[in-house]
């Protein structure tokens, strides 16, 4: 029997993996993927809460749809900028993006 806790556990796990990826990985594309993981953790949360806590409303689901849309747009935009950086200096490692410090 699946309970709310299962979903929350999965979502927390996904979120943590994503958080780790953002903080530890150096490849810009992998960082973006990690952010996607975090956003999807949010979506799981929202839908699960909507299902278990307020099954008569659809606020959670609607919120999740908005998040999906915006996440897609965000990645599209981010990849465009990554591409631009790559054309400029043939690297997408965030360690190499270091023209400005402090």
């Amino acid at each position: 029997m699946l309970t709310l806790q299962h979903f929350l556990g999965l979502s927390a796990l996904l979120f943590s993996i994503g958080l780790y990826g953002v903080l530890a990985r150096r490849n810009a594309v992998v960082i973006l993927m990690s952010i996607e993981l975090m956003l999807n953790a949010v979506n799981i949360n929202l839908v699960a809460f909507a299902m278990y806590l307020a099954p008569t409303q659809f606020v959670g689901q609607i919120f999740a749809i908005f998040v999906i849309c915006i996440a897609a747009a965000e990645v599209g935009l981010a990849l465009a900028i990554v591409l631009r950086i790559y054309r400029g200096r043939s690297s997408i490692s965030v360690d190499d993006i270091d023209l400005m410090k402090w």
Partner: peptide, 20 residues
């Protein structure tokens, strides 16, 4: 370009935190 990539990565990351 560097400003853009830094901004979007950190911005998306902060959005994820806020959404959670």
């Amino acid at each position: 370009g560097e400003a853009g990539i830094k901004y979007i990565i950190i911005g998306a990351f902060s959005s994820a935190l806020m959404l959670y």
